[in-house]
Nucleic acid binder design. Structure first.
Ligand SMILES: [Mn+2]
Ligand SMILES: [Mn+2]
Ligand SMILES: [Zn+2]
Ligand SMILES: [Zn+2]
Lengths: 147, 147
DNA sequence: TGTTAATTGAAAAGCATTATTATTTGATTG
DNA sequence: CAATCAAATAATAATGCTTTTCAATTAACA
């Protein structure tokens, strides 16, 4: 895991470099994304910030995520059911392990993926630019909690 | 690739066994899914069948896909942008290679995934039940077509 | 401090999918 | 080979998440 403070600074600097204003709402969103503990959703970001800024609009969270995404500083994990989770701590594509019970999302250590990518490129004659790998299952906590 | 005729029969039999009627609309949908050439979308299935049944409703395509999915006879590839593609020829989870230019979807041969799944299970203490692996890139045809 | 373009909040619009409902129809039975 | 009836269909309305709109606000810069 990258240092959240360094990630925060890096994202802020990127915003500055591209001529974007640093509003309190924006800073609050970046702060949460820099850590991305548990891979937050738009909704959970909104709820957390509302405690401090009661007028914070959901549209503002969406808008800022679109902006930060366009700068390549947050990884969006969009799911077919329409839900989205974010990782601003590590914005590069990487595998995820998702608990279908408690919705926890974890970053596993896996290095065999690069080799796999090369295999696929050779076999299919594609130029591979990106990838997405999700494992779905039940986490240890939820297994233990089962009756 | 499985034999489309055998897949067609298998899906039809599954429908019969579960007490579902075999309507002409349903048979037309199953026929396309059994082959799943190019991993069709709801829209492309609808367009193809409309040529024969001009009154075919889009809702009917959706309904039947939900049904066939519930019987485990089609794999749904849902994308974050809301689009969906289907594979009724091989309904088990498997990797896909997707061309971002022409939207072609290909099934690569990859066997190292099972091992990876075991690694992840051990490392994260999850019980892995399912997975999704997509590679995004540009296919040979689109590379060649580039000016 | 004043100027200005970016950003915001609130509400409306957009859009793929799902639900509703009246009508039609496949399958079963005798 | 009809009659029956639950299942399926077509058409349309509703849903729910995300984006857009627009007037008001504000960060940045001189
Ligand atoms: Mn992650
Ligand atoms: Mn496939
Ligand atoms: Zn869990
Ligand atoms: Zn292509």
């Amino acid at each position: 895991m990258a240092d959240p403070k360094k990630r925060f600074e890096a994202i802020i600097q990127k915003l500055r470099d591209n001529g974007h204003k640093l509003t309190p709402q924006r800073l609050a969103i970046v702060k949460i994304l820099a850590k991305s503990e548990g891979h937050p959703s738009v909704e959970s970001i909104h709820v957390r910030i509302k405690k401090e800024f009661s007028t914070m609009s959901l549209a503002t969270v969406y808008r800022n995520i679109v902006l930060i995404k366009s700068l390549g500083e947050v990884l969006e994990l969009g799911f077919p059911d329409g839900s989205n989770r974010y990782d601003g701590n590590n914005p590069e594509p990487h595998p995820h392990v998702i608990c279908i019970k408690c919705k926890k999302i974890v970053d596993p250590d896996l290095d065999s993926l690069d080799e796999m990518k090369k295999e696929v490129a050779v076999e299919t004659n594609f130029k591979i630019l990106n990838h997405r790998l999700d494992f779905f299952g039940i986490c240890g906590d939820c297994m233990a909690a089962k009756v």
